[in-house]
């Protein structure tokens, strides 16, 4: 992958990470989203609060991966960040299933069920696809000095 293309790709990954983090807070706000902050002393009762917080951290990690790739677009970085993104994407999708960690309550028609979770799954899938592209097309070998 050429450096220019690699940087564009890194920027796309960072934007994807921002989406993962922002979906539960701004795009499809989940219950108690008003208190979804790092320094809030509020003790949430709803399970979806924790789902939102996990996605926030996952999104942060995806952004970080994008930034690493942006500033160091080498073949090795491509491969390792790609593998990391596949894992992160999987976790983003898995936490949205109640059977895995019981992320939300059983209200089938609430916004977190019909909006937040599908959106996280779509973005999670795109993160996995990006990871796969990077693993299989890592570009030219980085010349060590």
């Amino acid at each position: 992958m050429k450096t220019k293309l690699s940087k564009i790709f890194a920027a796309i990954i960072a934007v994807l990470g921002l989406f993962v983090a922002m979906i539960p807070k701004y795009i499809f706000p989940i219950c108690e989203s008003g208190d979804l902050s790092f320094f809030s002393s509020y003790e949430p009762v709803m399970r979806c609060f924790w789902f939102g917080r996990i996605e926030l951290f996952m999104g942060g990690l995806v952004v970080l991966s994008g930034l690493i790739l942006f500033f160091r677009p080498t073949r090795e970085t491509h491969f390792s960040i790609g593998a990391l993104l596949i894992g992160l994407g999987l976790v983003i999708i898995l936490v949205s299933f109640n059977t895995v960690i019981g992320s939300t309550c059983g209200h089938d028609h609430s916004l977190c069920q019909i909006g937040t979770k599908p959106a996280e799954r779509i973005v999670g899938s795109i993160v996995i696809i990006s990871g796969l592209i990077m693993v299989f097309f890592p570009g030219k070998r980085f010349k060590q000095k």
């Binding site: 028609h109 916004l111 069920q113 019909i114 909006g115 599908p118 959106a119 799954r121 779509i122």
Partner: peptide, 9 residues
């Protein structure tokens, strides 16, 4: 995929 995912919404 978008229509299926956000069908209910």
């Amino acid at each position: 995929l978008i229509v299926i995912s956000f069908r209910e919404l």
